[in-house]
Design a protein around this nucleic acid. Structure first.
Lengths: 259, 259
DNA sequence: CGATGGTTTGACTTATCTCAAGATGGGTGG
DNA sequence: CCACCCATCTTGAGATAAGTCAAACCATCG
């Protein structure tokens, strides 16, 4: 389980980029050298408390950010106070990956629990693009995956009812966590409040609750505090019309398939 | 008006990339040379009939695609037959922009009217990245904009009711068309059926119709056949909580501001 | 001028929200 | 170590936005 708990997470520097390495390895065939190069990255490691804004709307990015430990959510806030969560950032995910053009954040990124973020200088990424084509390709994959995930989210919100949405969301999260952990389990911890889930799926806390209970009553999932167990994978997938292939990316010899 | 009509659009090769040049110029300061380089691009120009699939789910991209004339929509189709439109592709937009990794489409792209698409060899884009840094930066901007637009769409679907959604969508389209046309007008043609708008905004044709009429009855817009006139910009923006800055991208000396 | 696809309208059903009140549970200070 | 407190979760009842079904209308085009 890649740490999302509120534990100290004071892992020594050398392990902080493991989640990133695991993810990139799943996206492309990295050589031993490539991996060493990533691990040798010099970065500023910044800790964030639960609820802290890692990125604020309008902030000008000054580095490439990688989530090392912890979870965060990306979020739009409306002038009427409502908010829409665009997605969650898990260990190994880029919070911001871009080079060669100035950019300011159009959404904030907020830590869900105690987290550690690596701030990697742009120059390092540029070096990857110049001299490490396999890593560069994996970065492109990663960006493309983020884009596709956002597209999947649009479909979730636009054309699925709350029941299907919830099922779809749980499946996506489960898939991502399996990749992050490098192993497949039938259950996972969900360190999110029902309000956060509601802000992601565009529904009320009340309705999130009822929907979750309905899924449980139907025997599709089992909940034990904030842990979810997938009780009937096939039924869940059928319900959500879920396609475990995040779709689309043709990975020649990637890590073990997801489910 | 950059042609979206069903007119022949048989523009000679040299003008087909104008929309792209205009858009990229708006995103970054291109030199005379840069522009000449883009215009000298050798591409295969492919015509599509209304309703034709420009990209089919699962297709392997073999080139970078640019919409030259016409409109298209990106779309997910569900196994139950429903569909979700992810967004529209306007003249000058990339249909697919990626290099250095194999990729298959996770959504289809369908021509809304007679269209012309440029298929640009990957090598040309790689050359841009090697030798034309300003163009490369503009391409990155463009990709980032697409991503932000998708995020805005998520917010539209998740936390706005149908009335706000429609207002927000019309404003976004209006902004984009103003950029594409290089001029600001208070009205624009909307070559979309209400069903397509519904599939974009996650609502029924019936409800699209009622919503549109409500906007009109309130004096926010005026409709004359498929032409929309923004009758009360301030009210529309307030209603939609619309931020005309697609946000976020810091463009040093870009073309004239949008609105 | 009749087909055809798109738009408009009405009447009824349903999913989801709102408001409001309890229940739970884990964390903190005494 | 206990008791209290706050955030979170649960549940109920009534209100409303949006969906469904069905029919009429309208415009465009062969």
């Amino acid at each position: 389980m890649v740490g999302f708990q509120d534990d100290p997470g004071g892992g020594n520097k050398s392990t902080l980029l493991h989640a990133l390495v695991r993810k990139l390895s799943a996206l492309g065939n990295l050589s031993r050298e490539d991996i060493a190069f990533i691990e040798a990255t010099k970065a500023e490691w910044k800790p964030f408390r639960k609820g802290a804004e890692i990125v604020r709307v309008g902030d000008r990015y000054k580095a490439v950010l990688v989530m090392c430990e912890g979870w965060a959510y990306r979020c739009h806030t409306f002038s009427n106070g409502r908010r829409q969560i665009l997605g969650f950032v898990l260990p190994g995910d880029f919070i911001a990956l871009h080079v060669n053009f100035p950019r300011a954040a159009d959404h904030s990124v907020v830590a869900i629990c105690k987290s550690t973020v690596a701030m990697i200088p742009f120059a390092r990424i540029e070096e990857i693009h110049r001299n490490h084509p396999r890593i560069a390709a994996a970065l492109s994959y990663s960006t493309a995956e983020d884009h596709m995930r956002l597209g999947a989210h649009v479909s979730r919100l636009g054309r699925r009812d709350s029941y299907e949405r919830m099922a779809h969301f749980l499946l996506e999260l489960w898939d991502r966590l399996n990749v992050a952990n490098g192993a497949v389990s039938d259950s996972f911890d969900l360190p999110l409040t029902q309000e956060e889930i509601g802000d992601l799926l565009g529904m009320t806390v009340v309705h999130v609750n009822r929907t979750l209970k309905r899924l449980e009553a139907s025997g599709l999932i089992v909940r034990q505090r904030r842990r979810i167990r997938i009780a009937d994978l096939a039924a869940l997938k059928a319900l959500a019309d879920y396609d475990s292939a995040p779709g689309s990316i043709v990975v020649p010899n990637a890590g073990q398939g997801i489910s």
